[in-house]
Nucleic acid binder design. Sequence first.
RNA 1: GCCCCCGUAGCUCAAUGGACAGAGCAAUGCCCUUCUAAGGCAAAGAUGCAAGUUCGAUUCCUGCCGGGGGCACCA
Length: 577
Amino acid sequence: MIKEKIKQLIKNSIKNLQNEGKFIEFEIPEIVVEYPKDKQHGDYSTNISLQIAKIIKKKPLEIANILADQLINSRRDLFEKVEVAAPGFINFFISKEYLQRQIKEILKQKEKFGGQNIGKNRAVMVDYSSPNVAKPMHVGHLRSTIIGSAIYNLYKFLGYKVIGDNHLGDWGTQFGIMISAYKKYKSEIPNLKDITVSKMLDIYVKFNKEIKNSPELQDIAKSEFKKLEDGDRENRKIWRIIRGKSLKEFDKIYKILDIKFDLVLGESFYGKYLIEEIRNALKKGIAVRNSDRSVIINLEKFNLPPCLIQKSDGATLYGTRDLATIRYRVKKYDPDKIIYVVGNEQALHFEQLFHSAELLDYISYDKLYHMKFGLVLGENRKKLSTREGRFINADHLINKVVELANKTIKEKNPSLPKKIREEASKVIGIGALKYNDLSQNRQTNIVFDWNKMMNFKGNSAPYLLYTYVRLKSILRKAKFSGKFKPEFLEGEIELNIIKKLTNFPDIVKDSADSFQINNLTDYLYLLASFVNNFYEKLPVLKAEKEIKLVRLALIKAVTIVFKNGLNLLGIKTLEKM
RNA sequence: GCCCCCGUAGCUCAAUGGACAGAGCAAUGCCCUUCUAAGGCAAAGAUGCAAGUUCGAUUCCUGCCGGGGGCACCA
């Protein structure tokens, strides 16, 4: 946590100067420490002197020089130099000795470098994946699943008590459609217990097409859902069987992706709280009942359309269940944050939901986060729609990527035994798939592109894994004994790698705080390119004894950080590929 | 019509209001008798338009153009 250290030092320096009467009284502005983009500008930088200059209307360079003097004198062990760059940037160059000590720290920590107890067991809930029952999982849910599980890992690593909840879409009018479709096409399904998910989808799509021609089918679907909600025995039975079948399919995907949840409650779980939910909202005067018997929460003061929580036929909606879910979660876990990993398209819904939850006094608005991401669009740049049967099946995608990985290994490394190859293809293929989603921050919609998904070069998981494998290969040939003399670690290439390694804890924290996992992927990619440059230029096995030992230590330290970093992304590491 | 997201190199992406806008793919030229060439090195290439705030704008404000999504009885 060098960033925090530097922040503290700056604060102290400013206070010292103020005590000496150097600056007139002013509030210390927010101190921001950055990682500069290139080597020339040092290892960390801040433009705090500019901020101060703005407040006290003095020359930034002058202030920067005074501050820099203070800083270097305060920690000669930490900084090699503290340099002022135009117009008011202060660059910190970490000292060689400090870096040499850091490699020992990293090696001491073995497999957990960067794990911190910032969370102190405070709870964070992550709501992710949440596919709709009775439909195949598609790429959109895959994004939520992958991003959600990474954010889960990050918070866990920081010491939070994290609860991952797969909030299944297993309730609502869409289920009314499913039940109606089943009843309509019953003759095609001799035994409900043998129904497959693809058959479910088939009749679902077929029924939706029919709705377009005869809109009265929509009403039938609604009433089937109402019956389900009211406890109709037949509908409950259909629901139970279809739900169970779907869950089995989902579990297969979660298993291959190596994704776990603490809770899989689903929307249906909250059925029993919904009447109370509506009554409660009415009683508090937050919700009102319209003349047609529907119930809404007015959100005009937030410039939002009202949130409907009960339909005129008495049935409940998405919003009702989500409110009940929040209330349940707060009561049971008292989370610091609830993070919803859901696509952009639901932005309005979450705005409504979060404001409603605050109005109802369940939880404050700023503890609720919609971690949104761009939609995955089809090749025609239009939204993929399950209803219309246009989607990319997650199952299919996973198989295809793993298959390609297998083929690639066969080409690149034909001597690798079949069994190892097959294990490696899973790690590489699924890693590539995950990395592709995690390395992007922007909320731009993504046009689904097979070529990109299958790109195993450059900034991709296979590149990171390749780097890791090569390091492991060296460690197999010359075992690292743990003994080395850090003072032999002094080449620029090696020191730059150590600098990078010491950033790791800061990067993990920043990624979690800002929900920007691509900070972490960018970091790992840059580290990998440093390392590739390193073993291209500097021999390890053939180096002189002390140099060899210290380089082995460096490699060992890098593998520790790599392993931690990749695991946080949900990517496993491997020994050979 | 109203609201939200987005517009950066030929393509896909990066950049808490900061330094010279970073990468990868594709295309060009080098490097496998040396720890896995899924690699390394070199050169080339970009902020939709117009004003504004600022010492400083890809980032913030306003307008326009372009793409996508959403707007109570779906989730």
